[in-house]
């Protein structure tokens, strides 16, 4: 599954690094390093990380079994920001 983190939004709360440590890792005090192609068996953990991110910075596809792409994160729908 593919994922991307909007690092302008990311504020280093590290929730994702706790919930899916094989995909997300803190690098230094507040930088995030992640693997943009997570293994399929990480799906549950990535879904939890996406949901838990306090600033909703993570976009991932393939989170649903049906292969339905995820709905656009609410905050990203606003233009001009």
């Amino acid at each position: 599954m593919r994922l991307v983190v909007d690092l302008n939004k990311c504020q280093g709360y590290a929730q994702c690094a706790f919930l899916a440590p094989d995909v997300f890792a803190m690098h230094g005090e507040e930088s995030l390093v992640y693997n943009p192609l997570a293994e399929q068996e990480q799906r549950e953990r990535v879904a939890r990380a996406v949901a838990a991110c306090p600033v909703q910075a993570i976009t991932a596809d393939g989170l649903d079994d049906a292969g339905e792409p995820p709905a656009e994160p609410g905050q990203e729908a606003a233009h001009g920001r």
């Binding site: 593919r2 992640y34 991932a60 792409p69």
Partner: peptide, 17 residues
């Protein structure tokens, strides 16, 4: 991430909304 060995250069495809 790629140069640090945490991601593959061939696999940074963007997720689809």
């Amino acid at each position: 991430a790629v140069l640090l060995g945490k991601a593959s250069p061939q696999h940074t495809e963007l997720p689809r909304r």
